[in-house]
Design a protein around this nucleic acid. Sequence first.
DNA 1: GCCCAATCTGTCAGCTACTGTCAATATAGG
DNA 2: CCTATATTGACAGTAGCTGACAGATTGGGC
Lengths: 203, 203
Amino acid sequence: MSERTPGLRERTRLAVQKEIAEAADALFVERGFEATTVDDIAAAVGMSQRSVFRYFATKEEIVLGKFDLVVDDMLAALRARPADEAVWTSLHRVFDVLVSLAEKPGHEEMVEPIHRVVFETPALLAGYLQKLQHMQDAVVTELRDRADAAGTPYAVDDPTPRALTAAAFGCLVAAQHSWLASGAKGSFADAVDRAMATVGPRP
Amino acid sequence: MSERTPGLRERTRLAVQKEIAEAADALFVERGFEATTVDDIAAAVGMSQRSVFRYFATKEEIVLGKFDLVVDDMLAALRARPADEAVWTSLHRVFDVLVSLAEKPGHEEMVEPIHRVVFETPALLAGYLQKLQHMQDAVVTELRDRADAAGTPYAVDDPTPRALTAAAFGCLVAAQHSWLASGAKGSFADAVDRAMATVGPRP
DNA sequence: GCCCAATCTGTCAGCTACTGTCAATATAGG
DNA sequence: CCTATATTGACAGTAGCTGACAGATTGGGC
């Protein structure tokens, strides 16, 4: 009924999910996303195609599912910012969650190639942009709540929070683009900082 | 070999394409995108499914293909802006192309429902965002060319043009979102103006 | 108006992503 | 240890999409 310890069942499920994702990612990086069949992935982890689809709703989700976990972290990060902080600054700090994830040691080797697969595969890029869009919806809701709580609510038809959020996420994507285009040489954090410095809220 | 008058062949092709798109759009609005089969569309226009795919590469393109035509217009609009105009202003004016298209009389009745279908169907929203992304690539290239021609080129690793463009397009999507959320009551042009007024380039 | 090459079309066969169903198996948790 | 529940593979089926081919249609030069 309520929250309990994850439970063994749940834990094995996540473990299998991770195993599939890792095997699939390796294949995607090696042969490309479209050239890799779900049957290939199933064979690689030794299960039936049907079972792969029991862990991931779609082939895309094998790659993009990772980002769902980040959404919660990002929202938590947003809620943790002081209520009177400038919105643009809060958004910038929220992106630190993504940055630190990209720079986390261990799977550093895979982050950039997968990133590249996402940006170079039309279906994946589209799915990724859509996930960012959903994330923006959640962020906008949070920003409105925050303004309400601060006693300075936005008018219902005020596009400000959504426009600010969209602009910030636009900068994020621009940063990822620049970063990949430069061969992922500099730090990702710098790329984000630089992109977000070029634009800002109007006085 | 070179550019001639459209030619009858080409014109009939475009006519058939338009006929398919209109029949399909009606079905999409009526039953929804996913619930409508390509066979349904083929039956509606009295041809085989195979032939429908000869006019549109994918089912999504039947809806989203329209936007490809706009891209060229928008790029032309960008090139028509004075070279020394502020980038943000140029981008704002480029969006007028979209606005005037949405407000063009004749098919006004369909613009809003289709818009709604796009924003409410995950696959279509994803595809739409991806098209906007491609459009941004073209715009960024154009902005760099313009800066080069003006003798004030951007450094190759300067994220400014891309970030500005991404922020502007973010505002565009935010405007569409607000407009739809308000039941498409006010003018779309106002929605765009308001969204773009909340953000701007940093000094 | 005639003719031919280019284009269009339907049909069929096939691939891949994805889903429903069901019976068999495994196992968490009492 | 036992059973309710979750997990699985096997099979069948649908929808989107593609290649191949043969036949009908037709634009446009003659």
